[in-house]
Amino acid sequence: MNTSFRKAVLLPAAVLLLGGCDARLTVDLNTNPPADPAITRVDASLRGLDFRKADGSSDTLEFRAGELVDLLDLQDAGTFRLFTDETLPAGRYTGVRLLFDEAEDDNVVARGVVESPLLLQEGAYAAVDFQVEDDESSDESISLVLDLRQSLSYEDAADEYTLTPALRAVPTGAAARIEGTVAAACPTGTSLADGGAVYLYAGNGVTPDDVDGAEAEPYATTRVRVDGAAPSYALGLLQAGRYTLALTCRGNEDERGASDDLGFCSVVDVEVGEREVLRRDLN
């Protein structure tokens, strides 16, 4: 998705609902793909952002009206510019989360031509840390990443999806990236095309686990891409730090909230610095 096109269309629809002129804030939104490779569209009506402050209060930035966005368009190089050079009042900001228009009938998940309703729930705050002080100018640029594998769940009986946002935030200018090729052989009955996925966990020496709300939960996930000369993966917009990287050929079986044995392999420790692009092939 062309970023400049997103800006031209979306910026006129955004309006600040806060007073003050103490800081300038720019926020972009990206996504990581869902577990189900058959999902072709995730339409959700975005309404803005809710910021948590250290004193327990909160401030919001909202659009004039909800913006219906296909969240799958925001993978890889796709970017949704939420706000540009908006202002925030003084305070220390410690968290941010997405606001949705939950009543929008067009909130749907599509698998080909088949659409199912999408229920939107309030998510936890993603950690941020910046200070706005009176009479002092500052500029903050934040990239948010909505991990759809960790956010989407499906209720078979009701034929409906629920999106509970699993969001991470990183200062845009400091964001790191880990990428590489994948040469691991998948067990019989699985494939990189259907279930190849890479999970990233905060800290070294972590035992990988699925998205079940227990034990180790991933910091970021992505699918293995098989449309190039060789299978590959890329995890962008990461905080600098130490991580555990793990591959599975059964990522399409990961159901949010359920305990699934994903048969992780190629588990390695990595460390990435600010603005670094780390190459780590998985064999």
Rank of each mutant, 00 (worst) to 15 (best):
P34A: 07
L68V: 09
E253G: 09
L29Y: 03
T60S: 12
A54W: 02
V128S: 10
T190M: 01
E115L: 08
C186Y: 00
G257T: 05
Y161T: 03
S57A: 08
P187D: 15
T31M: 05
L167S: 08
D22N: 12
G213L: 11
V206K: 04
Y233A: 01
S57F: 04
D129N: 15
P231H: 01
T79H: 08
D28M: 07
E217M: 06
C265H: 01
R250K: 14
D101V: 15
L11K: 08
P231D: 02
T79F: 06
Y154W: 10
P218M: 03
D210G: 14
A216F: 06
T3Q: 10
A158E: 13
D210P: 01
I142E: 07
S57N: 11
L25W: 02
D129E: 08
D134L: 13
P208I: 04
L235R: 01
D28N: 13
D85H: 14
G228T: 12
L68H: 05
R242I: 00
G203E: 11
F63H: 12
L278P: 09
R279P: 02
G189Y: 05
R52L: 10
Y93M: 15
G257V: 04
Y219F: 14
D70P: 08
R279W: 01
E276G: 02
S259W: 07
C249M: 03
R279Q: 11
L282Q: 00
T244E: 03
D76N: 09
C249P: 00
V224H: 00
L10H: 15
L146H: 05
G56C: 04
F100M: 04
E115N: 09
L29C: 03
A246G: 00
V113A: 14
R24K: 11
E271T: 15
T3D: 13
L88Y: 06
V15K: 12
